[in-house]
Design a protein around this nucleic acid. Sequence first.
DNA 1: CTGTTAGCGCTTTCAA
DNA 2: TTGAAAGCGCTAACAG
Lengths: 365, 365
Amino acid sequence: MPADRGRPPAPPTISEVAAEAGVGRATAARTLGGYGYVSPELKERVLAAAEKLGYRANALARSMSTGVSHTLGVVVADIGNPFFAGMVRGISDASRARGFDTIVLSTYEDLDEEIAATNVLIDKRVDGVIIASAAVGRGEVTHIRTALERGVPVVLVDRAIGSLDLDTVVIDNRDVAREAVETLIAAGHRRIGFVWGPPVAQAPTTRRALLSAAARNVWTDGERLRGYLDALDDAGIPFDPELVMVGPKTEEHATEEVVRMLTLPHRATALFCTETDAMTGALRAVRARKLSYPGDLSLIGFDDSAWAAVMDPPLTMIEQPVHQLGAKAAEVLLDPLEGAEPRRETHTLHARLVMRSSVAPPPAL
Amino acid sequence: MPADRGRPPAPPTISEVAAEAGVGRATAARTLGGYGYVSPELKERVLAAAEKLGYRANALARSMSTGVSHTLGVVVADIGNPFFAGMVRGISDASRARGFDTIVLSTYEDLDEEIAATNVLIDKRVDGVIIASAAVGRGEVTHIRTALERGVPVVLVDRAIGSLDLDTVVIDNRDVAREAVETLIAAGHRRIGFVWGPPVAQAPTTRRALLSAAARNVWTDGERLRGYLDALDDAGIPFDPELVMVGPKTEEHATEEVVRMLTLPHRATALFCTETDAMTGALRAVRARKLSYPGDLSLIGFDDSAWAAVMDPPLTMIEQPVHQLGAKAAEVLLDPLEGAEPRRETHTLHARLVMRSSVAPPPAL
DNA sequence: CTGTTAGCGCTTTCAA
DNA sequence: TTGAAAGCGCTAACAG
């Protein structure tokens, strides 16, 4: 009866391999670690012994003495969001290609989680960290400063933080947002709803107030709002606070807000949705009001997906280069690790408006 | 001019804290590690010193000497799939609640990646591993055996492996699949297409061949196919190989296969899609053939989503308890770690068929 | 209750 | 070229 109860034998260490091969620890370490000189014969013996014992290096011990882990940490806002999932894949593909493992932690948009996650990464001695931060207001970035002070390089991705002089990889949110809204305006719309607004209770009545409310929130949200306002300004369309969603950023609430915008005396005839859930929420409202698009209402949303393409009619959407975004972030983090000078600049990638069939001229009301 | 160039000062160690506080290392270690007895006064001084120096324990050193890391490893097939993303969240919520960090690695359905990922986790000395495996045939599970031999407990999630006597948490794929197909049959359908089949070049002509091809692939696929066949059998409907998709499991190919099924002399009047992408692929085919659902064709798919609910008409879908699946896996892994007897059994959770409007009687052809 | 000492497994001088 | 020995930061026996 095999010793099923007692815990399994401890994994073999380098000393055991050395003993088995009849050489000193250092020699075994050198051949197994792939550094220094070892004669072919001894190398042979060590390899055989390692094979026989099923030796695998203890990564912990190794990073303990070398000080490097060949591991990158990634902190994202929500791994359940296909946008971040795609970005993470870009990061891990790029880092693996350069011999780095990546460990990812999701904060679900909670700042405390973000701080905890960053600390976990620091404590585990990763060689660098990539963060899509939920922190915006200055003063909430001490966890990032802490990382920096301890010598852990960090690069920001998707969400910039102005107060930090860091390498940052983002998408031209403001420009595409403007392009999307311009597309709507070009089709003849003047009553354009902005669907994922700042999560404040009351609709700010002035542009300034609105912008500052947005600025206090997620960085991308603020940029997209700016793009919306840019387009309105260029076309000489006055900003109407009733056309921007406020309150919790949930699909349910988006539906409520869109229903509100659609029942206004001078209702919205087009919607610009800044997130996937904002779009599905809007679609529910359209259905609830027994309206159809693009006849009664035009639609443009952020984050293209297979679903958006199979909707009937297919939705005009903004496609972000998610994989490339992650790959670039990894590159920017790894280059300095491998000797390059840190750049400390902002790298901007371009999103693309994918024209389909959810935009048409506004109905005569 | 601050030393910007030279690398930042090394993070403070416990010895430095001890020195600063004027106590021995052990005392500092005891108060900072939260074990053993320390007088209130000394504790006070140590805490102050730690605070002052910005001390954070080195997790590597700690696990090095204790042998535990309070970290769980998770290996999933594709973190970009909302199903796995949701499951991962269930795992991390549950483990964090019990004081464990989790690090997740995605294999993108590649067995070599799965092996590499598992090894990374073993090498980093995680306390346990949760795997949604891409390996099915026996003989490809040596990486899992290796983990076990080295004393790393592993639990399987979503995808069972019969040849391994391990705790496993899955969903009743076969039963829901059967329920879905029965629903179609009850509506009057007899020509029901099965959309995500085994990735073989030629359609197997016998049930046996089909099943064994599926069994060689992802576990869930085989189960869902069995459920499909179960329903057919119960209704006395003969199995027709032309109604099951074969070839690469991609959205594009699903479209091709569905187009094929829809142009058969005796065409499919209903489709059972086993994955999200299979459904979007099918929807493209429906559009291409200028058909509409549920009038011309009934549809049921796996993995409910916000999109499925806003389609027009909304889709009848199978909703899997993803969060619960992950939470249960974490529980099953952690319980033995905290002293409970390992169970080594299969835990089955139930998926739910969400009735909406994509099923109707077949058209008169 | 506190300090000293010996490891954890690996890398890395430094002699031999 | 190879081996002995020190050290990474922490925990854990063991004295005191």
